[in-house]
């Protein structure tokens, strides 16, 4: 949306997971509370980064933001490694969501169902806010023509900061959701960030519908790929990405004008 490519998104995801872990360890924050608290905390951290650092680079080629956030990844990951150690920490599935649910055709872990439901709700909410509410309209307008929007008396800066914060909070929420299924460790963001980029590029930068659709479609594709021909499933997403960029540079759902 903001034409800010945030390499540190994966690190925010990792911080979300760590916030959950430390919340539970130090303050006995239960999982369901962490679902709210961790994204808020990490989102606030994101806003701090945006206002103190990223904002300085907005007038320049977006590449510089990419570079700065790349540097932030290195710093944040290593700081977490110093604090938490490289091995990672366990976080167990909340009791209420343990166990297995019988879906009739197959057995599925209750927690995974919960994750799917939460993701769907959040995605729908994000889409609804951006596409159908006045705030969303302002955000969209601000990205397309910041000068005009500013002339209308809207504080573009705050809008941008707020949107960035929400984006970071969502990454952190994903981290919270991931905490019980994976090992919470400093490099966990590394493995997701590249996939996330590919998904966003395929869906189209700035298109929430696109990202959601691409995310789910590729998840499915990857699972099918893993069953049909395992060696290729990891590379599949990048192959799709290259094909999409060649034939639809703005992504499947993006508006074609924004090539740069």
């Amino acid at each position: 949306m903001l034409r800010v490519v945030n390499f540190a998104h994966g690190a925010m995801y990792m911080l979300g997971a760590f916030a959950t872990y430390y919340g539970a360890q130090l303050f006995h924050v239960p999982f369901f509370a962490a679902l709210i608290i961790a994204p808020l905390a990490v989102g606030a951290f994101g806003i701090l980064l945006e206002t103190t650092l990223l904002r300085r680079l907005y007038g320049l080629d977006p590449i510089y933001n990419l570079l700065l956030t790349f540097a932030l990844v290195l710093v944040i990951e290593d700081v977490m490694r110093l604090l938490a150690g490289p091995l990672g920490s366990p976080y167990s599935t909340p009791d209420a969501l343990g166990g297995i649910t019988n879906l009739g055709f197959t057995l599925y872990p209750t927690y995974k169902l919960f994750v799917i439901v939460v993701s769907l709700v959040v995605c729908l909410a994000a889409w609804w806010i951006v596409e159908l509410t006045p705030v969303g309209a302002r955000i969209r307008a601000a990205t397309e023509n910041p000068v005009l929007v500013r002339a209308l008396g809207i504080d573009v800066r705050r809008l941008v900061t707020g949107t960035f914060g929400v984006g970071v909070a969502l990454a952190a929420l994903a981290g919270v959701l991931a905490a019980p299924t994976t090992n919470v460790q400093p490099s966990m963001g590394d493995s997701v960030i590249i996939y996330t980029f590919a998904i966003v590029v395929i869906g189209g930068l700035g298109s929430i519908v696109g990202s959601i659709a691409a995310g789910f479609a590729l998840g499915l594709l990857q699972t099918i790929g893993a069953i049909v021909f395992p060696p290729i499933s990891t590379t599949l997403i990048f192959i799709v990405m290259v094909i999409v960029i060649v034939f639809r540079p703005a992504g499947l759902f993006g508006k074609p004008e924004s090539a740069r």
Partner: peptide
């Protein structure tokens, strides 16, 4: 392509 897209490809 240029910019971010080039980097991503």
């Amino acid at each position: 392509r240029a910019g971010i897209y080039f980097a991503m490809i």
